[in-house]
Amino acid sequence: MSDIRYVRGDATAVSGAGAQVIAHVCNDIGGWGRGFVLALSRRWPEPEAAYRAWYRGRADNDFALGAVQLVQVEPRLWVANMIGQHGIARGGKSVPVRYEAIDTALGRLAPKAAELGARVHMPRIGCGLAGGRWSHVEPLVTERLVKRGIAVTVYDVGESGG
């Protein structure tokens, strides 16, 4: 078992041989337009389009807190849209992050990443606009991914993503 690898850089510019998954946290209200998702959309249109279609069809699919949608963007690269925040921050005292949902989503991502033989890359998920604390999220990443033998790289940049 290895630890989480921390690097400075762009979580959308992953490198390395083999399959790769970029994991990030989305909200449960269909909003896509601030934070890390903008960097994703600058590189690939597919994650946003898939998320919006998933949200529109939510009456007939699994779109909910804790759900994961894996979207292939290149031959050996996927983006994991993980529903881990309830609503969006509106200036109040409550934060939209839902640690239980992130935990569930990571648990659902693990077998998919293992099946692909993929490394998982992410910003500090849930800690940007979702308002979470990495001290709460890091143990979830360790438990759900690292302890299952999945290599994880966390990217730190000038602005928080997630």
Rank of each mutant, 00 (worst) to 15 (best):
I4W: 07
I4G: 02
R5N: 08
S15M: 11
A17L: 10
R34G: 13
R34Q: 14
F36Q: 03
V37H: 04
V37S: 09
V37I: 05
L40G: 05
R42W: 11
P45I: 06
P45E: 11
P45W: 01
E46L: 07
E46C: 06
P47Y: 10
E48A: 12
A50G: 00
Y51N: 06
R52F: 04
R52A: 12
A53S: 12
Y55E: 01
R56V: 07
D60A: 15
D62R: 06
G66H: 02
A67F: 01
V68W: 05
Q69D: 13
V71N: 05
E74C: 05
E74A: 15
L77A: 06
L77C: 00
L77V: 09
V79Q: 09
N81Q: 06
N81S: 02
M82Y: 04
Q85S: 06
G91E: 03
G91W: 13
G92K: 05
R98N: 14
Y99A: 09
D103A: 15
T104F: 02
G107P: 04
G107M: 06
R108S: 07
R108A: 06
R108L: 08
A114T: 12
L116W: 03
G117M: 12
A118Q: 00
A118N: 04
A118P: 02
R119F: 01
V120A: 12
M122C: 13
I125H: 10
G128N: 01
G128P: 01
A130T: 02
R133M: 09
W134L: 05
S135K: 08
H136G: 10
E138T: 06
V141S: 00
T142E: 13
T142A: 12
T142N: 13
E143Q: 15
L145Y: 09
R148H: 13
A151I: 07
V154G: 02
G158T: 12
G158R: 12
S160E: 13
S160L: 15
S160F: 12
G162A: 13
